[in-house]
Design a protein around this nucleic acid. Structure first.
Lengths: 121, 121
DNA sequence: GCTATTCTCAACCACATGGTTGAGCAACAG
DNA sequence: CTGTTGCTCAACCATGTGGTTGAGAATAGC
């Protein structure tokens, strides 16, 4: 069960780790979209877009409904809720410890001014 | 600039998309750890663990300080805060458009009090 | 029926990722 | 000085990922 959840998280974060898919999600937030519509903004083949959508489905972020010859996609609220919940908990998990860290960092910043360069490495 | 942000997000989500790295982050939340300590729980070589840590660094989630021959790692609060902020915005972006989602979350919160120690591994 | 549209699938390619081993550097312990 | 420890780096391997093209299934339109 935990195993299952882990794989779900892997899939969700993997799905979010690609700018194309993030934009598709953003697009879907305003309503249903066909595969073609989702692919539209990108300079990639329909087949490539189809694979991205499959990745989103695998992560449970998107549901698909076939009507006629067109496939309509929409965000999957249930799975989104799970991701939401996890992220929220994870954030708290971090921020609980960030208070301590922030103090350390503030001390450091005091004698070691903010490195504001591009930070690219 | 947006470009830069996109790549940062790619790196962050990619880093979170691996259970080994998620556990390392969880481990780091309780304090500094050496590379060896972080690698400890996993049945992989030190070199492999080192690569995972480098991925976390690339995402800006972890900072490293070399003291003597040991490398001490800790969460990078600045980058973490940025990720935190982005996730929160993204969540709102979604929930604004998903009435169903909010209801689901409210129901879950009601019968499923904050799960500390989410155990995602 | 015939054609055009929407979309998936399979095969393929280049490159990234996660793992290994072996070499080697730097620093602590004796 | 010598040996051990902590860690990185380089080379290599298997697999995964994102892209392509070409073929084909199914539906819509005429």
């Amino acid at each position: 069960m935990v195993e299952q959840q882990t794989r779900q998280l892997d899939a969700v974060f993997h799905a979010l780790g690609d700018a194309t898919r993030r934009q598709m999600l953003r697009d879907l937030a305003s309503g249903e979209r066909t595969v073609g519509q989702l692919a539209g903004p990108f300079p990639i083949s329909l087949a490539a877009a189809s694979k991205h959508i499959q990745a989103l489905e695998r992560a449970g972020l998107v549901r698909r409904e076939v009507r006629g010859r067109t496939h309509w996609c929409r965000l999957d609220a249930m799975s989104l809720a799970a991701a939401h919940r996890w992220l929220r908990d994870y954030e708290r998990f971090w921020t609980d410890h960030l208070d301590a860290l922030e103090q350390v960092l503030r001390e450091e910043d005091a004698r070691h001014p903010p490195t504001q360069d591009g930070d690219d490495r």
